[in-house]
Amino acid sequence: MPEDVSPPPPPYVAPSYPAPYVPPRRRSAWFYIGTIGGSFAVIALVLTGIIWGTTRSSGWSPFGSDEIAVIDVTGMILTADKIDAQLRAYADDDSVKAIILHIDSPGGAASPSQEIYHEIERLRQEKHTKIVASVDSVGASGAYYIASACDRVYANQASVVGSIGVVMEWTNYGDLMRWAKLKSVDIHAGELKTAGDPSRDMTPKEQAYFQSLVDNMYSQFVHDVAVGRHTTEDKIKPLATGQVWTGQQALPLGLIDKEGGLRVALMDTAKEVGISGEPTVVSPAKEERGLLSMLLSGGEDLFPNPGKLLEHAPGFYFLWK
Results as ranks from 00 to 15, higher is better:
89 A>E: 10
90 Y>L: 06
188 H>N: 12
135 V>D: 00
87 L>G: 04
88 R>I: 03
86 Q>I: 01
148 S>F: 10
92 D>W: 00
130 K>Q: 06
165 G>S: 14
116 I>P: 01
145 Y>N: 06
188 H>F: 12
97 K>E: 01
167 V>L: 11
85 A>N: 12
163 S>W: 01
144 Y>L: 10
149 A>N: 08
176 L>Y: 08
191 E>C: 03
149 A>Q: 05
168 M>T: 11
122 R>E: 00
181 K>Q: 13
171 T>K: 09
151 D>Y: 07
110 A>P: 00
198 P>E: 10
163 S>G: 08
92 D>T: 02
160 V>H: 09
105 S>V: 13
98 A>R: 03
99 I>N: 02
161 V>F: 12
183 K>G: 08
101 L>H: 07
96 V>M: 01
102 H>D: 15
93 D>Q: 06
81 D>F: 09
97 K>M: 02
154 Y>N: 05
132 V>A: 02
189 A>L: 08
133 A>G: 07
169 E>N: 13
177 M>A: 15
148 S>M: 09
160 V>S: 15
159 S>Y: 12
194 T>C: 04
129 T>E: 00
146 I>N: 03
187 I>N: 14
181 K>N: 11
81 D>Q: 12
115 E>H: 07
169 E>F: 05
149 A>F: 04
165 G>L: 04
103 I>H: 05
159 S>L: 14
193 K>R: 13
166 V>P: 04
158 A>L: 12
172 N>D: 15
164 I>D: 06
193 K>G: 01
164 I>T: 05
149 A>P: 13
157 Q>T: 12
85 A>E: 10
143 A>Y: 03
157 Q>S: 13
139 G>S: 13
84 D>K: 10
112 P>Y: 01
100 I>Q: 03
95 S>F: 03
164 I>L: 14
110 A>G: 02
137 S>Y: 15
103 I>V: 14
102 H>A: 13
85 A>M: 10
151 D>R: 09
171 T>G: 04
192 L>Q: 08
175 D>F: 06
106 P>K: 12
164 I>M: 08
178 R>G: 09
169 E>A: 15
199 S>M: 05
165 G>I: 05
141 S>E: 04
187 I>C: 11
120 I>F: 01
192 L>P: 05
138 V>P: 01
154 Y>L: 05
80 A>S: 14
114 Q>R: 06
183 K>T: 12
115 E>A: 15
194 T>V: 10
143 A>T: 06
140 A>V: 06
89 A>H: 12
83 I>A: 10
126 E>S: 04
153 V>E: 06
184 S>D: 15
96 V>R: 00
168 M>G: 13
120 I>C: 11
119 E>I: 07
107 G>Q: 02
91 A>M: 00
81 D>E: 15
